[in-house]
Every structure is written in C-alpha cells, then in structure tokens.
Design a protein around this nucleic acid. Structure first.
Lengths: 185, 185
DNA sequence: GAGTCGTTGTAGCATATGCTACATTTGTAA
DNA sequence: TTACAAATGTAGCATATGCTACAACGACTC
C-alpha cells in the first residue's frame, strides 16, 4: 500500500469514527474536515466528491457493525425466532452497538427521502442483514424463513427508528409484545 | 373569521396539499411558495417563521390522516390483533393513505435526526396513534393492550419506513409473517 | 542546484437558505 | 377624495454548502 493509499485509509477510518459518534446530520464537508482535523480541500483530494466519501465511510461503518454482530452470534449456530430476536434486540440495545443502530436509523430515514447516496447503501445493508438473519434461523421452509427474517428486520429496525419517539416507550412495549408473541410459536 | 384568518387558512390548506404530494424534502420557503403560488415573503407574513409553518402544516396533514383512518374504522368497533393489523396494513397500503404514510415515514426519520420541529410533532402523532389503536383492540388486560398497540405501531410504521428498501420486498415479507403470527393467537 | 511531481493552503465561485428592511400597492373608512 | 392600515413586491443580507482555480510548499531525481 503506497503512501497515498495509507493516508486515505487513515482518513477513512477517522471519518468513520467521527460519523459513527456524531451522526449523519453533521456531514457537510467542512464539518467533517474539522472533525477529523483536516480541510474540506483535502477531503476532495482523497475522494472524488462528497457522495463517494459518504459511500465509503458508511460502508466502513456497516462493515464494522456486521463484524460486531457476527462476533456475538457466529455463523453456524441457528436459533428459533424468539431466541434470535431476543439476542439481536439485546445486542442492538447494548452500548456497543447503539451508535450503529442510530446511524442505521438515520440512513434508512435518509433513504426514505431518496437522498443520494443513502438509498443504495441502505439497500445493500438491508439485504446483507436479511441474509445474516436467514442463515441463523432454524426454520426449514425457505419461504417461511425469508418471511421471518424480514419480520425481524422490520421489528428491529423499526424499533430503532421509533426509539427516539415518546421517550422510547413505544419501542420498549413493542419489544415486549413481540417477545411474548414469538415465544408462543 | 376575518379576512386575514381566511387567507391564512386557505394558505395552510394549499400548503398541506402541496407537502402531502411533494414530500418533506422540498420544504424550503421558496420552494413552498412557488408550489402554492405565492412568495416566501408572504409565507413569512402569515407565519412567524418556518418552524411554525411546518408545525401547522404537518399538524393539518396528521389530522387529515386521522380522519381517514377513523372513517375507515370508526370508534366503538373492536378487533382482535390479527384483524386490526390486517385492516390497518391494508389501509396504509391503499392509494388514498399511501402519501400520508410516506410523509409519516419522513417525519419519523427527521425526528430521529432530532431536526426541529419534527420531533415534537412526530411524538404527538405517535401518541395519538397509540391511543387510536388501543381503543380498537379487543384485549382486556391494559398492559397487554398497550404493548400490542405499540407492536402494531412498530410493524406498521417500520414497514412504511422500510418500504422503499429492496423494492418493498422486505416489508411485504414482514407483513405476511406478521399476519401469520398474529393469527396463531 | 534545477526541475518535477505529489501534496496542501488560500481564496473564491455559484447556489441555496432563512429572514429582514424598505418601498409600493391596495382596500377601506372618514 | 384623502388618509391610514393592511397586503404585497423588490432587493438584499448573512450564512452555509459543494466544489474549483491557482499558487505555494516539500521531497525527490537528474
């Protein structure tokens, strides 16, 4: 890796950390530059434009999130829906993963407004999460497994999205009801 | 109602219609003004500032949405969770209510980013929807009814929010799974 | 040492945004 | 008709944003 690539990689890492902590609302080039101690001019030296920068940085964040998830629930183990939901919901609420969920909520939100380049990234992450869940569900029927994985996505992501509303009461109650419901299967 | 109030009411209605169709991404004062055939100057003549304008306009939209919902499912009738979910999910997908759900998704999204004044409005709407659902659920136990209403909110809103992702496949599958799950109660 | 190429700073452009100051028109009451 | 207030237009400010032109600096080769 040449010096240029090294520098850029370092920049990417610092930007990812900054965005993970600060959120997607402070992502003007000048704000990002100040956050990682450089200038907007340099950001556009290392990245073609802002879209490419965000694409790379959000990709990094998504990758790190997948690593965390997979570290907690390695591939190979399979769970009943109630168990998988409990594990993932607990994970999503943990201090370690909370920032990632928050960012994810913001991204899905931005994607809903069809802001570029969020839509494409959110799409990729969603499909990745779908597969991740499917491969950990102990359901034989393919269609049922797909549907259940999607249900879990909506519950987990929806819960994360609605978390800020009503002081978190709605998503807490929903989680309880979902848990109870899944345990009846 | 004086002439001024009339004019303002008309403005509000036109703005609400415009925002309902165009979405929350085109809400600069100049864009709004062009959309309803006036000037940004006049918007600030009838509204203190942009925040007040959005508050009023989004409130109107929320009110209209509640009217639609209540027209379809009048107060007094009560349903089992599966039936209520089916009815509301069908409604939310209907051509009539789709724009409202889209706007609601955008609002929740904006609220997640703690953009003002979206958070407060989204909060109010959420609590209203919670009560609306509770009063239509045929569940005796209060806590269970609350939890189930919140679960439905997360499923319906979460589904609406994730609707744009993966071409709508995720939310469709989730809806099927949820329907099947609720029918086992 | 001169020149070259990769890197960085400075300054700025063009556009958009919320909002305001001031002037002008319009309606209305005397 | 005149006088006054309400309503509307014009122009602009201050700031923010993505991005670019140009110059300066630095290391390295010849």
């Amino acid at each position: 890796m040449g010096k240029h690539e090294e520098q850029r990689a370092s920049l990417e890492a610092r930007l990812a950390q900054w965005v993970l902590v600060q959120g997607l609302s402070k992502t003007s080039l000048r704000q990002l530059a100040a956050g990682v101690g450089t200038s907007d001019r340099m950001l556009l030296y290392y990245f073609r434009d802002k879209a490419e920068l965000l694409e790379v940085v959000l990709g990094r964040i998504a990758g790190a999130m997948t690593l965390h998830l997979t570290a907690a629930l390695p591939e190979g183990q399979q769970f009943a829906p109630a168990a998988l939901y409990a594990r993932v919901a607990e994970l999503a609420a943990s201090a370690e993963l909370r920032p990632y969920m928050d960012r994810w909520g913001e991204m899905a939100a931005a994607a809903a407004r069809t802001e570029q380049p969020f839509a494409a990234i959110a799409d990729a992450i969603t499909q990745g999460f779908q597969l991740w869940l499917e491969s950990r569900l102990s359901i034989c029927n393919d269609a049922e497994r797909r549907d259940m994985a999607s249900l879990l996505i909506v519950m987990i992501d929806g819960g994360a999205l609605l978390e800020p509303l009503d002081g978190g009461r709605v998503s807490t109650r929903a989680r309880q009801a979902m848990q109870a419901l899944l345990e009846t299967i």
